[in-house]
């Protein structure tokens, strides 16, 4: 085969470009390097997982992408424009816990972003999303009346209703049990396959990262650096059974070694 195919990166220019991202927090015991010289291009339409141990700066990175926190050095660009503050019309954010407002019922929670943006509420789209996430009939319920999985599904509806082109997810299923987590991962993949969204998914769960991602970006323990990028060539649509295949398990072990090696490396440097 002599078909000339350009590399994928050229076909789809970077949706998000992270260049030399460094974040140093000032704490009482001195400066803390949360993130050090991290660079990454996120392609349009891909689901990229950022994986690393606790405290490796994944969340710092995500908050920098969202424009909520500034970087100490380096920059983030979305569609070629530097991110210097929240970009409510392009970026959607899904938080660690569902982060619903407890004084509002589900419908009011989902309408909340539209109230802030003073935009009309796309009722048909919300109804369809509620149906797709199995929340039909619960739109009058308050968050405390719902399970953790249902709350997180509602927060996904809240984010998707606004049709952001990039979805930033910060360990969204970390607090859920293993069964609910699998269910949520499948739901996320289904919703994503129906859209053209770019998803940056932060997690500390290796199998979750492999299961979801087109690519898995492994970070080192503090200070967070890029250790390695894995291309995941599992076919789509993905099924839970894939998680039990030998190649999947090998990949888990390989990534585990990378994380550990990254840790030693950073100890040597300091």
């Amino acid at each position: 085969m002599v078909l000339i195919t350009a590399p994928r990166t050229v076909q789809t220019p970077a949706k998000l470009r992270i260049n030399g991202a460094t974040k140093i927090y000032e704490s009482k015991s001195g400066p803390v390097h949360a993130l050090e010289d991290f660079s990454l291009d996120v392609r349009e339409g891909e689901l990229i997982c950022i994986l690393g141990p606790s405290g490796c700066g994944k969340t710092t990175l995500l908050w920098a992408l969202s424009g909520l926190h500034a970087l100490t050095r380096g920059e983030v660009a979305l569609d070629g424009r530097p991110v210097t503050g929240p970009r409510p019309n392009e970026l959607g954010m899904i938080f660690q816990d569902a982060n619903l407002l407890p004084w509002r019922n589900l419908r009011q929670n989902i309408h909340f972003p539209f109230e802030i943006k003073r935009r009309p509420v796309p009722r048909q789209r919300i109804t369809a999303l509620l149906h797709e996430t199995g929340l039909t009939g619960f739109d009058g319920s308050y968050p405390r009346e719902l399970s953790g999985g249902m709350q997180q599904r509602a927060s996904i509806v809240r984010a998707l209703a606004q049709e952001p082109s990039v979805l930033l997810m910060d360990e969204p299923f970390g607090a859920l049990d293993a069964f609910t987590r699998d269910e949520m991962n499948l739901l996320l993949l289904r919703l994503w396959s129906e859209s053209a969204q770019t998803i940056v998914f932060v997690t500390h769960n290796i199998s979750e990262a492999i299961f979801l991602g087109d690519r898995v970006v492994v970070m080192t323990p503090r200070p967070g650096r890029l250790a390695r990028i894995y291309d995941i060539d599992l076919p789509r649509p993905r099924t839970i059974d894939m998680m039990f295949e030998p190649s999947f398990i090998e990949l888990i072990q390989d990534i585990k070694r990378t994380v550990e090696a990254g840790g030693r490396h950073s100890v040597e440097v300091e």
Binding site: G67, L68, P86, M93, F95, D97, L101, I116
Partner: peptide, 21 residues
């Protein structure tokens, strides 16, 4: 802070954050 960050991610101004959060 998470709820304030939520509102800010939608572009809320200080007054909106006060009134709605």
């Amino acid at each position: 802070l998470a709820k304030i960050a939520l509102a800010r991610s939608y572009g809320a101004n200080t007054f909106q954050i006060f009134r709605k959060i």
